[in-house]
């Protein structure tokens, strides 16, 4: 190779390596900032009290915790999984087991389109459909909005893993006289069970971190624990959003603590996903 070509090649590698580092750097910056500021906040009150007590009222001193918001996030995530997973499994089975029907192709296309709808618009939709008739934001409404985010996402993963089951297993099932439902539910789902679990966990991770779908639907108080599924609930993401925009330094500190709790939950699920992916591939 001529010197000129060699130099260009070296420069090229240096530039793309540098830009790659620039691209990934914000992740480290964000994670360290959240870890430091969040740990500062949590250390001031202790972890247990931070997770269970109520945040300080605006304009007062002290720190308190994020109890109601944490409870709300757990309720919303669980409820949206409960709504979203059966629908996702149904849709994925339809699309994979009856690929040539018009409904299947239409639903597959619609589900892909749904994935790209801005989540804030889903919040407006659920507001009109549920919050207005019920006269109150509620855990149900928030969970419905979250499940609308989750379903297309989870469905896509489930389709991929159900489709990856080799046809020979289906044929073996049919050969011993099993029905289509039997083969789909017991053979295909059985073989792809880790993939199915992975799709579900991915959906949960997604629902856990969403803010915009909850803006007009969950509507809970940061200061009161939720009392019923038809009443308002708070979430960690909503709390961070609201407290970040207040002028009170102690509330902002609570927001950083809440962010650390959220990131820790996210990273735990992310790790679980990575371990699952490894198992699914082998």
């Amino acid at each position: 190779m001529s010197l000129r070509r060699k130099l260009i090649d070296r420069a090229f590698v240096a530039v793309i390596a540098l830009l790659s580092a620039v691209g990934i750097a914000p992740l480290f910056y964000i994670l360290t900032t959240v870890a430091i500021r969040g740990a500062e906040a949590i250390a001031r009150v202790g972890l247990w009290r931070f997770l269970t007590s109520i945040p300080p009222a605006p304009g007062t001193h002290g720190l308190g915790g994020i109890g109601p918001a944490l409870a709300g996030t757990l309720i919303l995530t669980a409820l949206s999984t409960l709504i979203g997973v059966p629908i996702s499994i149904g849709v994925a089975l339809l699309v994979v087991e009856f690929p040539n029907l018009f409904v299947s192709r239409a639903v597959r296309a619609l589900s892909k389109t749904f994935m790209e709808i801005p989540t804030i618009l889903l919040s407006m939709l659920v507001y009109t459909l549920l919050v207005v008739p019920m006269h109150t934001p509620s855990a149900i409404a928030g969970a419905l909005a979250l499940s609308l985010v989750m379903i297309p996402y989870t469905t896509t993963y489930l389709e991929t893993y159900l489709e990856s089951v080799p046809p020979i297993y289906r044929e073996a099932g049919y050969a011993i006289g099993m029905t289509k439902a039997g083969v789909a539910l017991r053979v295909v789902m059985g073989i792809a069970r880790k993939g199915v679990l992975l799709g579900i966990v991915m959906g949960v991770a997604r629902a856990l971190g969403e803010t915009a779908p909850l803006l007009f639907t969950a509507g809970g108080s940061h200061y009161a624990y939720p009392t019923s599924l038809t009443g308002p609930v708070d979430s960690i993401t909503l709390l961070i959003f609201d407290f970040a925009m207040t002028p009170y330094t102690n509330l902002i500190q609570v927001a950083w603590g809440a962010a650390l709790v959220l990131v820790a939950m996210y990273l735990a699920i992310f790790l679980a996903i990575k371990l699952l992916v490894k198992e699914v591939r082998t």
């Binding site: 629908i87 149904g90 339809l94 087991e97 409904v103 239409a106 389109t113 379903i151 289509k180």
Partner: peptide, 27 residues
């Protein structure tokens, strides 16, 4: 039984179709 299986999968599919139609209608 295959037809029953297909029928049982239609409600979840219908929710997606309904959600999309409601989305367009509401907006």
């Amino acid at each position: 039984s295959d037809r029953l299986f297909l029928l049982s999968l239609l409600p979840p599919a219908a929710t997606i179709v309904a959600a999309m139609m409601l989305m367009i209608y509401v907006f």
